[in-house]
Design a protein around this nucleic acid. Sequence first.
DNA 1: AGTTGCTCGTGAACACCTTCACAAGCGCTA
DNA 2: TAGCGCTTGTGAAGGTGTTCACGAGCAACT
Lengths: 210, 210
Amino acid sequence: MAPERDIPDATVARLPVYRRTLVGLAAAGETTVSSARLAELAGVNAAKVRKDLSRLGTYGVRGVGYEVENLLMQIGEVLGVNVDAPVVIVGMGNLGQALARYGGFSTRGFRVVALTDSDPKKIGKKFAGLTIQHQDDLPKIAKDLDISVGIITTPAEAAQQVADELVAVGVGSILNFAPTVLNVPAHIPIRKVDLATELQILGYYQHRAS
Amino acid sequence: MAPERDIPDATVARLPVYRRTLVGLAAAGETTVSSARLAELAGVNAAKVRKDLSRLGTYGVRGVGYEVENLLMQIGEVLGVNVDAPVVIVGMGNLGQALARYGGFSTRGFRVVALTDSDPKKIGKKFAGLTIQHQDDLPKIAKDLDISVGIITTPAEAAQQVADELVAVGVGSILNFAPTVLNVPAHIPIRKVDLATELQILGYYQHRAS
DNA sequence: AGTTGCTCGTGAACACCTTCACAAGCGCTA
DNA sequence: TAGCGCTTGTGAAGGTGTTCACGAGCAACT
Ligand SMILES: NC(=O)c1ccc[n+]([C@@H]2O[C@H](COP(=O)([O-])OP(=O)(O)OC[C@H]3O[C@@H](n4cnc5c(N)ncnc54)[C@H](O)[C@@H]3O)[C@@H](O)[C@H]2O)c1
Ligand SMILES: NC(=O)c1ccc[n+]([C@@H]2O[C@H](COP(=O)([O-])OP(=O)(O)OC[C@H]3O[C@@H](n4cnc5c(N)ncnc54)[C@H](O)[C@@H]3O)[C@@H](O)[C@H]2O)c1
């Protein structure tokens, strides 16, 4: 039951990519895959794949490769994809609406179960079968639906306050789209998706090449 | 003129965060900032800030700190934020529309100048002052507007094809939102923004904590 | 000018990650 | 059972990134 502990961060970050690749292979009817092939499809080095997978306690078969289904199950176990985590999206502007309508969550172990906003004009509107509720009702929503993940898509100025509210109602992890650094207790995992930062990084490499 | 070469990847990835922080400080009327303060606001270690900034050839003043305006200019120079890079968004679905309406590009050196899609029903629609054009017209668009950056927000299945088309018309860098690994020539910088991956990484850390 | 307090820049140590290279192991065939 | 081809798992080496710790330098005040 217990997945192996202490998987390196770099490995954890690659597991979802392996998983996605394996889902594709399984759909194509492949039953086994070598580290070399998986590496090519996932865009990484083959030795890295083997080292990563060995961290799971997963063992491949020498001379043959890894069993696709088995590997999928093991990675799913480690990532917790097999449990369905309830998600709330806070801030139903441009981005929040796009996320609410996105269908790619369900196959990855996440289910958007609530949408909130602080703008009275938005309350009551529907997206993808859910009604936007007021941010002030978050405590009740979180309790009723046992919210586990919070996604922040508010303007940067409101993001810290929203993060505090999410932590207060017991959310277990946070994904932040607002371009600002958030302070949360150390035990709450938090990650950011920062489009503008990515573009600027690209800017550097392109700029430098010329 | 020439910025220092060979800035480590890890440093480059942090420069946009420093920049954003400095913009905030400048707006608040601060003229100098210490590495300790900048570190706290940017959520990193102070020694790291100093090492990063020393890579720019930027010099602070001992006993005082760094001059905010000067630092902003230097980072902007390195990132190429001071030139206005024309951007095309390919795939005007949920996400593409949200990005098209997003106002945060202009202050970071990027300007969305064209939107394309392959769905005839979407051609001609307007977003944020731009009209969606057909993907087949990309060569002409790229030439006329001197497109420098391509953002891919199509379904994963179409992403590689779109990437090839972007490369063919001479785009200088690519930002990919589709959950798939893209193959592009080595000289084209490419980065991905992968929401589902981020959620799964969070899943691991949350799962593990329990 | 001398002293004090603060902050930078950086060498050195450490931790983490990647890559190479190869022995060990598996399945298949004869 | 022996031999062969293929692929894994991992020790070791090399590289990158982080953090510590401290000398050096500037400003301000006496
Ligand atoms: N739209 C994009 O493509 C894009 C791209 C990159 C980053 N971002 C970032 O994502 C965030 C959202 O962007 P957007 O374009 O959707 O902005 P938006 O202004 O369209 O939407 C923000 C929403 O948050 C709500 N809100 C504000 N304060 C709130 C609070 N305290 N509690 C709950 N809801 C609150 C607003 O009512 C609004 O509906 C911003 O931080 C932006 O910088 C957006
Ligand atoms: N919407 C989200 O919140 C979200 C979140 C994470 C990832 N993504 C990813 O971003 C991508 C877009 O998501 P979406 O929800 O906007 O999808 P969507 O289906 O709403 O939009 C895709 C658009 O791309 C267009 N398109 C398809 N093939 C094309 C081609 N060859 N050339 C040009 N345009 C083409 C379609 O006509 C459509 O308008 C997907 O890969 C999705 O997995 C989306």
